[in-house]
Design a protein around this nucleic acid. Structure first.
Length: 629
DNA sequence: CCAACTATGAGTTTTTCA
DNA sequence: TGAAAAACTCATAGTTGG
């Protein structure tokens, strides 16, 4: 893969596990010769500042849609969301008239699913006047719930006290509030009429909630509750709202499963707990390259908007309730579930919670091969016609055994010369190939992927994990635990025009450095990377990568997130001037389906380190908020 | 002690089919 | 549309062989 040319400047390499000795820090941002080339930013810079303009269609075009169709539909007044939804239904190559018919069906049906009707329902349920709601939605666009709420508030308040619908009946009596929202509340207060109610209202508004939301929360939770409970309520409500964009009827969810509820020890007050997550199908999040269904706008909770950006990742198929909890602790942002099969040859269903912009994403070049045929050209001659697979399954931390491959060969050998092996043999072989993700490497020989191939599929440079003390077993384990680089890079690509001079990164649970590789392949300069990774061999890998790619920035490595105290973070931020991106995927050991022993949910020994991510992120956010003032 | 290897299902989602 | 079947999963722990 392409390496940085030129620049023989030394990189600074830190490995201060226990102590912070960062005295000879010598980074000068302005002197960095690494600047993105203008021509690589064509089409990106245009729309960085405009969030709602038709310029959004440019990236739809990039994804292969006809720009004329989009432009005409957009001009006709249809929202992007509607257009996307319609195209998802009709396919990308449908006639314009068909798409229009589909869209108009939505608006005439006026049923759940249309964002406009959703918005109307939302505010009608709060007791606002229908005419005013429609007017406000017309003025502000159905996607801008905040603006609509603010527009409604002054003209609609006194006579009608908002009625809250049961959909927001959330268990806000919880005590497990690990997110310290209090840190975001300023102390300097000048309050003439200081009853508690008003204080709380003001605090909430300062934290970025609208007055409508704040009053709703106070009314709902009572006046004498802790501010944390109010924020918990609001975040949960936000989450519920966001989830509804992805997920349909919550009643479809299976009723209480006795053994589940690993998550919350507390009993839900009613059956209407936090709205459950439903995985999108197809699992494309806000959209992936070359597929319809692109969404370029979303509403983030105000509390989570803007810097610092964060990007959190974990397995999509976690036990029930896990993602709800994760989301609740990350400001109620709905997870973006994406299957990396849209970026490479292998499945990889993951959830990502982040506050990054989502318009004008682009993928790194060259794109990966999508099908087994293309990705494994040599296997074509050995691939049996009755093995219909075109994609591989998820790359895991262990591979199939040699004995298994032998059993497969022995099962097939007696049938050499026959057109096809018998059904039951086929069945057995296919099952095993799927289960252990085998590819055909010779006559009747199916074999697990080699670490080299895993590196390639996951988007890492060749030999990224090879040598340097890594055993083969370790390599496979580390790779199985890693990001899929192309997928993550697609999400992070929006940072490129925002940080032409480079970014400061706090990388937690770094592993083999998937985030760093993604940024590097996006050619986003990394001024500072503070990395935390428990496994020494993985830290060495990142260190080697840093040296080999001739990074100009500073790399600081720590081993244990639990040892990264708040004070240390503060000192790091003092030294480096804050972090622009906090990225990491916390351990999935206790969430992953492959774990038959200790799939204990978020409270498991390893997976509970998620809360360390929250703690550290909160410290960074609080610090950045103070600096911004 | 280390590295390689192997057996160990369930829980949940997704697809199929009537 | 709904029930049944199929499909899939960032793994752990024990054993072996050196």
């Amino acid at each position: 893969m392409a390496q940085d040319s030129g620049g023989d400047e030394d990189y600074v390499d830190w490995n201060t596990d226990d102590d912070l000795e960062i005295d000879n820090f010598q980074f000068s941002p302005s002197s960095s010769p690494v600047q993105p080339r203008a021509e690589t930013l064509v089409g990106l810079a245009v729309a960085t500042t405009s969030s709602n303009s038709p310029a959004e269609t440019t990236d739809l075009v990039q994804m292969g849609f006809s720009d004329e169709i989009f432009a005409s539909l957009y001009d006709m007044g249809f929202s992007l969301e509607m257009i996307n939804r319609a195209i998802k239904e009709t396919g990308p190559n449908a006639e314009t008239s068909v798409i229009i018919d589909t869209i108009s069906k939505y608006s005439s049906d006026c049923e759940a699913g249309s964002s406009k009707s959703k918005a109307i329902d939302h505010f009608l349920a709060m007791g606002f006047d229908e005419q005013k709601v429609i007017k406000a939605i017309h003025e502000h666009g159905e996607e801008n719930m905040e603006d609509i709420a603010n527009a409604l508030l002054p003209c609609a308040e006194p006579e009608k006290s908002p009625v809250v619908k049961e959909e927001y009946d959330i268990d806000w009596s919880s005590e497990d509030d690990d997110v310290n929202y209090d840190m975001l509340v300023s102390d300097d207060e000048n309050d003439p009429n200081s009853n508690e109610n008003n204080n709380q209202m003001r605090s909430l508004v300062r934290m970025g909630f609208s007055e409508l939301e704040a009053s709703l929360a106070v009314e709902r939770c009572g006046e004498n509750v802790d501010i944390a409970e109010l924020t918990d309520f609001l975040c949960a409500a936000q989450m519920a709202r966001q989830f509804s964009e992805f997920h349909t009827d919550p009643e479809e969810r299976k009723p209480d499963n006795k053994k589940r509820r690993i998550e919350s020890k507390r009993e839900p007050r009613s059956s209407a707990d936090v709205e459950p997550v439903r995985l999108p199908n197809p699992m494309i999040g806000f959209g992936v390259p070359n597929e319809p269904g692109l969404i370029t706008h979303r509403s983030l909770p105000k509390i989570a908007q803007g810097a610092p950006y964060f990007y959190y990742e974990n397995v999509a198929l976690a036990p029930i309730g896990v993602w709800e909890t994760i989301s609740r602790h990350l400001y109620g942002i709905a997870p973006e579930f994406v299957d990396s099969k849209y970026f490479c040859v292998a499945n990889r269903k993951r959830g990502y919670i982040h506050n990054l912009p989502i318009n004008n994403r682009f993928q790194i070049q060259p794109p990966q091969k999508y099908t087994i045929n293309e990705a494994f050209p040599l296997s074509k001659q050995w691939w049996p016609a009755w093995d219909k697979r075109t994609k591989l399954n998820c790359i895991l931390t262990v591979t199939g055994s040699a004995k298994l491959t032998n059993r497969i060969r022995n099962a097939l050998r007696p049938h050499i010369g026959e057109p096809e092996p018998p059904q039951h043999v086929q069945r057995y072989v296919i099952d095993q190939c799927r289960k252990w993700n085998l590819v055909w490497v010779g006559q009747n020989k199916a074999a697990p992927l080699e670490p080299d191939e895993m590196e390639n599929i996951l988007g890492f440079p060749r030999n990224h994990t090879r040598g340097g003390g890594m055993s083969r077993t370790e390599r496979i384990k580390s790779l199985g635990n890693s990001f899929q680089v192309d997928t993550v890079a697609y999400h992070l690509s929006v940072l490129k025009p925002m940080f032409p001079n480079g970014i400061n990164v706090l990388s937690l649970f770094t592993g083999i450095g998937g985030g760093e590789v993604a940024l590097h392949r996006l050619k986003i300069p990394m001024k500072v990377v503070v990395s935390v990774e428990i496994t020494e061999s993985n830290r060495e890998i990142l260190k080697d990568f840093w040296a080999q790619t001739k990074q100009k920035g500073v790399l600081v490595e720590f081993s244990d997130v639990q040892d990264l105290s708040n004070e240390k973070i503060e000192r790091l931020m003092d030294k480096f001037g804050g972090f622009d991106l906090v990225i990491g995927g916390s351990p999935c050991n206790n969430l992953a389906g492959g774990n038959r022993v200790s799939r204990n949910g978020l409270e498991g020994d390893q997976s509970s380190l998620f809360f360390e991510y929250c703690r550290i992120l909160e410290v960074v956010r609080a610090r950045m908020a103070r600096r911004a003032r």
